[in-house]
Design a protein around this nucleic acid. Sequence first.
DNA 1: GTTCTACTGATAGGGCATTATCAGCAGGGA
DNA 2: TCCCTGCTGATAATGCCCTATCAGTAGAAC
Lengths: 132, 132
Amino acid sequence: MLSHQSSQRSERDTQQRRAIRSAIERADRPLSPREVLDQAEPQSPGLGIATVYRTLKSGVEGGWLQAVELPGEAPRYEPTGKEHHHHFHCRSCDRVYEIEGCPDDLRHLTPPGFALEAHEIVLYGRCAECAR
Amino acid sequence: MLSHQSSQRSERDTQQRRAIRSAIERADRPLSPREVLDQAEPQSPGLGIATVYRTLKSGVEGGWLQAVELPGEAPRYEPTGKEHHHHFHCRSCDRVYEIEGCPDDLRHLTPPGFALEAHEIVLYGRCAECAR
DNA sequence: GTTCTACTGATAGGGCATTATCAGCAGGGA
DNA sequence: TCCCTGCTGATAATGCCCTATCAGTAGAAC
């Protein structure tokens, strides 16, 4: 017997998901799961880390979120759809910032015979807040 | 009573350490602990992964080795003393290659007020061997 | 409001890279 | 060659991140 319902997946609009999505979109930088929890918890008291991980995972699968991988670090998450950009990792507060621009002459660094498909640039130092 | 020996640290020159050091210096690219083991094992049959980790660690502390951290990857190791350079990560064979050159106009990417201390560039694609 | 069931929080469990443990081995000075 | 002790291999233990589990909760369609 066929169900009378369509095969649509539910995807409920819960308080927790709203808080998490909001926190990520509000931030102008990639957030770690821990940071997402801290930023979203006020809008959804009692929010658990498991729900954060679940929501991040489904966000990546759903295409509105992407993971930002940095050397020796657990991934951060930012919304998709932004322009090509890179990141600045503050060694003091450990936050990651988005930076504009890109030296797009990287092709000439590629060794002969190698096929360049993508690149990643990470700047390290102190953010404005930590530098003073 | 003072010992008649100086306070020098021993640092024995063992077959295993020779094999590991040799493997790393022979390679023209950063090696993972696993790769070090595979490369060094023929010259020191029965070599264990624990010894590789121990030797890598003391090598970094001793200053002749440095860790190469890549996004979402366990660190690789290469000898210190090389010129400033970056790396190419082959998505097919997972090997990491050293590349020359650097677009040293990264300062202008740094946001106002931020203090730039270092940077990392990683190229992704297929190495010559995997590209054909 | 009722009902169905996806969602949630707490936490146990899993995966993986690295380190600690420990008995036996092997540099290397005497 | 002898002896001291640092070194080694096997593997248990750790640490960190993330996922699975499960009973209770709360969207949302009717």
